[in-house]
Design a protein around this nucleic acid. Structure first.
Length: 545
RNA sequence: GGCCCCGUAGUUCAACGGAUAGAACUCAAGAUUGCGGAUCUUGAAAUCCAAGUUCGAUUCUUGGCGGGGUCACCA
């Protein structure tokens, strides 16, 4: 990459000047007018070498010019307090267009994670409960991270972990028994559990029966409810264009988790007041707290199950280089405790496990609820947005996903349905529109028999979009390093804006313009990068809309 | 109360210790006899407060103030 070449050049000239340095920071200036790359090396080294930054910068620049390596830099300038700015040459931009068009739907990929198998757990919707907008957030984020990792060369295994046993199920089954509808069952059961002593007792009884599979009638309700849930989840995944390689269930890991805990009583765990098996986190670290792993009725809590789950992940995929868990950040502190325990029992697994907490998806009215206070399901939200996009599902999904992915992963999202689709200029539909517009320009070019050509006319000034297109691979790399899809989203908006500006100021398809073939090539390169970027966000790029 | 996360234009978001803090919505003014007006151009408008580290702090440290999360048998 050009970045490395420039770095080497700087390094070489510093060596010639007998100036010592460790790492050279080479970044893109925030303003395109200040060059394509910039280094602050002179500012950083000025004090050490007892000169002022500007003088030092000048010295470095003249040394670089003396070396004068042909690497696609047209101009080097000292600016500001002592920054050295590099301006790439028109030939470089033409060359990068060629690369984009040749690589096509592979442009942007790298092999930084080649040979690594990574498991990404996300969504984690529980059977018998609603697939709500929180799951939508997790699914969108997890799928985007998965795709980004794949584009960095990793082999990704997507996993969903689902609570198919436990009190929440018992609550729903209790309500189903008395004829409550499937949609309402969990809410009704949960309310009864809190308010009605008799119901509470019955629910606990049902919970036990589910574990033991001892009551045929309950088994039947449970099995059909479980199936119905999982099928409905699958249809949501299809709409969201996501899928899973593994479905893990609490019922499969509950036992092994409990065994791990019991084996370590006295070493890691101890008995609590009421006979539960607990881990006293605060004894290890002030950031940790006490948690129950096996309750006083000898049942695994979520904590113990999680130990079993993480063990299982490495049983089904022994070669995992990394195991990533994407969840809401309300579970953050709890996960710290869990990871500590994991380190104590399975240090190897723990060292490869990483928790990525994300913010909550809220509506302007409040938390995740509608005005009536009920939690909104993902499908309700999709359908509501779809109404605003004239029934276009692809655009509706883009609107939602973009709203989720435009922001850094940790922050909460306030999802304004009106704005997600009606806004122009910072939305998924805007990106899709830009793409469709480019495609239609390209169609017109074919119709007029003008073909793309990457030979750059000498008199053509450098166009802003040229300065943005070539950066895409760097963005993909950074998004993977930091597990942050929003770098892609922000980049695509910048790209779309540059293209629309280019479109507004130029007639692209024009028989009388000798630079038209180059401009068409530029349009094609734009459409390719936009399509690839949208793919990484899990958004489809429609040819027309 | 302990611990964790977060405070940036009126609003929703950016900024890997760097230059004049960048966008979008809104608001004001303009463009188009053109390939998609879901467009483009121009303008107005912000780092919660106080110290510290640094050549340089929205970013790092400490202390306030404000918001959210979490703290034993739910997940």
């Amino acid at each position: 990459m050009i970045q490395e070449k420039i770095k080497n050049l700087i390094e070489k000239s510093l060596k010639n000047l007998e100036i010592e340095t460790e790492n050279i920071a080479l970044e893109h200036p925030s303003d395109l007018k200040m060059g394509d790359y910039s280094t602050n090396i002179a500012l950083a080294l000025a004090k050490k070498s007892k000169t002022n930054p500007k003088e030092l910068a000048e010295k470095i620049v003249s040394e670089i010019s003396r070396l004068n390596l042909e690497i696609g830099v047209q101009k080097i300038e000292v600016a500001g307090a002592g920054f050295i700015n590099f301006y790439l040459s028109p030939q470089f931009f033409a060359e990068s267009l060629k690369e984009i068009i040749e690589e096509g739907d592979k442009f942007g990929k790298n092999n930084s994670l080649e040979g690594k198998r990574i498991m990404v757990e996300h969504t984690d919707a529980n059977p018998f409960k609603k697939f709500h907008i929180g799951h939508l957030k997790s699914n969108t984020t997890g799928e985007a991270i998965s795709r980004i990792l794949e584009w960095n060369g990793a082999e990704v295994k997507r996993a969903c972990y689902q609570g198919d046993v436990g009190m929440h199920i018992a609550k729903a089954v209790w309500a189903l028994q008395s004829g409550t509808s499937f949609e309402e069952a969990y809410a009704v059961g949960a309310k009864a559990f809190d308010e009605d002593e008799k119901a509470k007792k019955e629910i606990k009884e049902i919970n036990k029966k589910i574990y033991e599979k001892s009551d045929e009638k309950i088994n039947e309700i449970y099995n059909s409810g479980r199936r119905e849930s999982l099928e409905s989840f699958d249809s949501v995944y299809k709409r969201l264009d996501s899928h899973f390689d593994y479905h893990f269930f609490e019922s499969e890991v509950e036992q092994t988790g409990k065994e791990v805990v019991k084996k370590n009583i006295g070493k890691i765990f101890e008995r609590g007041d009421m006979g539960a098996i607990i881990f006293k986190g605060e004894n290890f670290d002030k950031h940790l707290h006490t948690r129950v792993f096996v309750n006083s009725e000898d049942q695994s809590t979520y904590e113990a199950k999680e130990l079993g789950l993480n063990k299982k992940k490495f049983e089904v995929e022994p070669d995992l280089a990394q195991s990533i868990i994407v969840t809401g950040n309300e579970i953050r502190d709890y996960f710290k405790v869990l990871l500590k325990v994991l380190f104590l029992v399975f240090p190897d697994i723990a060292s490869k496990t990483r928790h990525i907490p994300h913010g909550i998806l809220k509506l302007p009215t409040g938390k995740m609820s509608s005005r009536t206070g009920s939690i909104i399901s993902a499908e309700n939200l999709i359908d509501e947005v779809k109404e605003k996009t004239k029934g276009n599902e692809i655009v509706a999904i883009a609107a939602i996903k973009y709203m989720i992915l435009r922001k850094a992963i940790g922050g909460d999202i306030i999802f304004d349905i009106e704005k997600s689709v009606s806004i122009e200029g910072d939305s998924g539909p805007y990106l899709q529109y830009s793409y469709a517009r480019a495609r239609s320009v390209l169609e017109k070019a074919v119709a007029e028999n003008i073909y793309p050509d990457i030979k750059r006319p000498n008199d053509l000034e450098i166009i802003e979009i040229e300065k943005i297109l070539y950066k895409f691979p760097e963005i993909v790399l950074r998004a993977a390093e930091e597990f942050e899809p929003h770098y892609i989203a922000n980049y695509l908006i910048e790209l779309a804006r540059a293209f629309n500006g280019f479109y507004g100021n130029n007639k692209i398809v024009d028989k009388n313009d000798p630079s038209s073939p180059y401009k068409i090539a530029l349009t094609e390169a734009f459409s390719l990068v936009m399509k690839n970027g949208l793919y990484l966000l899990g958004i489809k790029a429609p040819e027309r809309m």
